[in-house]
Simulated assay, not measured.
Amino acid sequence: MNRSARLPRIGVLANADSWYFQDLQRAARGKALLERLEFSSLQSRIGAGESISAETILSENFDAVIVRTMPLGSLEQVVFRMDALAGLERQGVLIINPPKSMELAIDKYLSLSKLSAAGYRVPQTHVCQTWQDAMAAFEEIGPSVVVKPIFGGEGRGIMRVEDADLAHRVFKTLQQMGQIIYLQKFVPHPGYDLRVLVLGERMWGMRRTSADSWRTNLSRGASATLAPIPDDVAQVARQAMQTLELSIAGLDFLPDGEGGWYLLEANAVPGWKGLSAACDVDVAAELMDYVVARINDQRKAPYPSGASGPESC
Score class of each variant (00 low, 15 high):
Met1Asp: 14
Ala5Ile: 09
Ala5Glu: 05
Leu7Met: 05
Pro8Met: 11
Gly11Phe: 00
Gly11Asp: 00
Gly11Ser: 06
Asn15Trp: 04
Ser18Met: 14
Ser18Leu: 14
Trp19Gln: 12
Tyr20Glu: 00
Gln22Glu: 12
Gln22Phe: 15
Asp23Thr: 11
Asp23Ile: 13
Gln25Asn: 10
Ala27Cys: 09
Ala27Ser: 07
Lys31Tyr: 02
Ala32Leu: 01
Ala32Asp: 12
Arg36His: 06
Arg36Gln: 00
Leu42Thr: 03
Leu42Pro: 06
Gln43Leu: 05
Ala54Ile: 01
Glu55Ile: 05
Ile57Asn: 12
Leu58Asp: 03
Asn61Arg: 04
Thr69Leu: 02
Thr69Glu: 09
Phe80Thr: 12
Phe80Met: 10
Met82Ala: 15
Asp83Val: 13
Ala84His: 10
Ala84Leu: 13
Ala84Ile: 08
Leu85Met: 01
Ala86Thr: 03
Leu88Trp: 07
Arg90Trp: 10
Gln91Glu: 07
Gln91Asp: 04
Val93Glu: 10
Leu94Ser: 10
Ile95Asn: 15
Ile95Thr: 10
Ile95Arg: 11
Asn97Gln: 01
Pro98Cys: 09
Pro98Trp: 08
Ser101Gln: 08
Met102Gln: 14
Glu103Pro: 03
Glu103Arg: 07
Ile106Glu: 04
Asp107Thr: 07
Lys108Ile: 14
Leu110Ile: 14
Lys114Gly: 06
Lys114Cys: 03
Leu115Ala: 08
Ser116Ala: 01
Ser116Val: 05
Ala117Gly: 07
Gly119Ile: 12
Pro123Gln: 08
Cys128Glu: 07
Gln132Arg: 08
Ala134Lys: 04
Ala136Cys: 03
Ala137Phe: 01
Glu139Phe: 11
Ile141Gly: 02
Pro143Leu: 10
Ser144Trp: 00
Ile150Asp: 02
Gly152Pro: 09
Gly153Ser: 03
Gly157Asn: 05
Ile158Cys: 06
Ile158Glu: 03
Arg160Tyr: 01
Arg160Gln: 15
Asp165Asn: 05
Leu166Ala: 14
His168Ala: 14
Val170Leu: 00
Lys172Gln: 15
Leu174Val: 12
Gln175Arg: 13
Gln176Thr: 13
Gly178His: 15
Ile180Pro: 00
Ile181Pro: 09
Ile181Gln: 11
Gln184Trp: 09
Phe186Pro: 01
Val187Glu: 05
Gly191Thr: 02
Gly191Asn: 06
Asp193Thr: 08
Asp193Cys: 04
Leu194Pro: 01
Val198His: 11
Leu199Phe: 09
Arg207Met: 08
Arg207Phe: 01
Ser210Pro: 12
Ala211Asn: 07
Ala211Phe: 03
Ala211Gly: 05
Ser223Val: 01
Ala224Ser: 13
Leu226Cys: 06
Val233Ser: 10
Val233Met: 04
Met241Thr: 10
Leu244Glu: 00
Leu246Met: 12
Ser247Thr: 04
Leu251Lys: 06
Phe253Gln: 13
Leu254Asp: 02
Pro255Phe: 08
Pro255Trp: 07
Trp261Arg: 13
Leu263Asp: 04
Leu264Val: 12
Glu265Pro: 07
Ala266Met: 03
Ala268Glu: 10
Ala268Phe: 02
Gly271Ser: 06
Gly271Leu: 03
Gly271Arg: 09
Lys273His: 10
Gly274Trp: 05
Ala278Val: 00
Cys279Arg: 08
Asp280Cys: 08
Asp282Glu: 09
Asp282Leu: 02
Glu286Ile: 00
Met288Trp: 00
Asp289Ser: 14
Val291Asn: 06
Ala293Asp: 14
Ala293Gly: 11
Lys300Ser: 15
Ser312Asp: 12
Ser312Thr: 08
